[in-house]
């Protein structure tokens, strides 16, 4: 394993056998996943519900044994050194994991104690995190009374109280309102800046886009694409400029005119608008406007479109992540 890698999997597989009406059904939840996560990055694992994200995470956090394959986490062998790995990783499950019969302070102290921290030190760390995540006003109330956002803050604090090298967050912002989500994105970025590697799963495109340095897209238990957000988008997506005009004749004329320029890769007419595909749309936007102005075209609208991760997903899987649109 290279020095900069904190996590690496080779052909990681998980199959479940379920019985239905006496016949055995083999479910391949994860079909040979290869992942590489570098130290210090925010790595995203993007995919729809049921794609195998949580199952992969359960394997990487030593909760379930892989059916096949190898993995190294924090430099240790997942199959042989699970016990040691647990000292160095943090995990916040989708459900959260806080003890609702205790308050935030008690929760945090116990979690620290389970990592072998002394009573005094555990209380100090609990206080620090209560301060940091602004939990003071509710820290001494039972966790069962917390709002979604408050509970999520406690969950995150529990996941990092022992200063793990890498923290796994399973759908960290699912079910939160936009404000809380923005708060969490900021906090996750801060934790990351302080040196903790973050591995998060999500089915929110915005989350993957805003938060992650690199990501892998998983669908039906298989990785369909891996790379930085920009690289993934560039790989499939062409940027485009969409120009709206009043008459179809104007559009045809503009099309002929702009077709002469080499940087316009492709173009087509869609109703009363002209769609131009080009490599770097932003760079050529002004130039195109000047050309059209010189020839006295009257523009009604102009828009610049960049490929989204959804386009990437659509291209790789044939389905959209947004509300199950088909290609």
């Amino acid at each position: 394993m290279s020095k900069n890698l904190i996590l690496q999997t080779k052909n990681l597989k998980k199959t479940f056998i379920t019985k239905k009406q006496k016949s055995k059904i083999i479910v391949e939840a994860v079909k040979g996943v290869n992942l590489e996560v570098f130290k210090g990055e925010i790595f995203g694992f993007l995919g729809p519900n049921g794609a195998g994200k949580t199952t992969t995470l359960n394997m990487l956090t030593t909760l379930t044994q892989p059916t096949e394959g190898d993995a190294k986490v924090v430099g240790l062998d997942l199959l042989k050194d699970a016990k040691q790995i647990r000292h160095h990783i943090g995990y916040v499950s989708q459900a959260g994991g806080s003890d609702v019969s205790a308050n935030a302070f008690e929760n945090l102290v116990m979690q620290a104690r389970l990592f072998g921290v002394s009573k005094v030190e555990a209380a100090n760390r609990a206080d620090e995190l209560i301060e940091r995540f602004q939990m003071k006003e509710f820290a001494l109330r039972l966790a069962s009374s917390y709002s979604g956002g408050q509970k999520r803050r406690l969950d995150l604090a529990l996941g990092i109280i022992h200063n793990p090298d890498i923290v796994f967050l399973d759908e960290p912002t699912t079910g939160l309102d936009p404000q809380s989500r923005a708060y969490f994105w900021d906090e996750i970025k801060k934790i990351n800046k302080e040196g903790m590697t973050i591995f998060l799963t999500t089915h929110y495109l915005e989350e993957a886009d805003q938060l992650c340095d690199r990501l892998s897209i998983i669908d039906h238990g298989e990785i369909v694409a891996t790379g930085t957000n920009d690289a993934l988008k560039k790989e499939i997506g062409r940027e485009s400029i969409i120009i709206g005009m009043e008459s179809i004749t104007d559009i045809q004329k503009a099309k002929d005119l702009l077709g002469k320029f080499a940087y316009v890769n492709d173009q087509y007419v869609d109703n009363l608008s002209l769609v131009l595909y080009l490599e770097e749309a932003e760079k050529h936007l002004f130039e195109i406007l000047q050309i059209l102005d010189k020839e006295n075209f009257t523009l009604q609208t102009i828009a610049l479109a960049k490929p989204s991760l959804d386009d990437v997903f659509l291209q790789k899987t044939g389905r959209s992540l947004r509300e199950g649109k088909e290609k």
Binding site: R86, A95, G97, L114, L158
Partner: peptide, 16 residues
């Protein structure tokens, strides 16, 4: 309920 809240999973991922 402790399984459902993820509390047990939290313990299982800790060194306990």
């Amino acid at each position: 309920p402790e399984i459902r809240t993820g509390y047990i999973a939290r313990l299982l991922v800790s060194p306990v």
